[in-house]
Amino acid sequence: MAVEREYELSPLDRIILNLIQKEFPLHHRPFQALAELAGCTEEEALESVKALREKGIIRRVGAVFDSQKLGFVSTLVALQAVPEKLEEIAVRVSALAGVTHNYQRDHAFNLWFTLTCQTQEELFRTLAEMETLPGVVKLRSLPALRLFKIGVYFKL
């Protein structure tokens, strides 16, 4: 997945990315607040973020919620698929709204995805159904038992 970086980040882009990854200010004029920290104008801050969003360097500006605190249950699933069925299985898995990350990995468990459901029953039922898909050798549910860190931060 080595995608070339096709957009040269300006020094201001870097400052703004380092700030906005951590927090988009809860403020009437958030870009004004960002601009004060970055040392630019409000318009420059807005234009920088818009351009980074359009170039796809920013995937999303929005909120990150704790799914558990919203009452949802989630798990990480390690699935072993026979290689010739892997893609078909991956597409079926990706079609589920509760699957947010789904990757092929270089391991006997060759498909890894996160699954979030409204209830534990729904989660178990979904996993049981997946287990019966043709080409699925086995799957293991690996729910988080303890969280030490969640914080995607990339120093730029």
Binding site: M1, A2, V3, R5, E6, Y7, L9, L17, I20, Q21, K22, E23, F24, L26, V49, L52, K55, G56, I57, I58, R59, R60, V61, G62, A63, V64, F65, D66, K69, L70, I150, V152, F154, L156
Partner: peptide, 16 residues
């Protein structure tokens, strides 16, 4: 703790 943060999520591979 319901809201972790409002912020930007990066496509990290595009950011280098």
């Amino acid at each position: 703790g319901v809201l972790r943060r409002v912020g930007a999520l990066l496509a990290h591979y595009r950011a280098g």
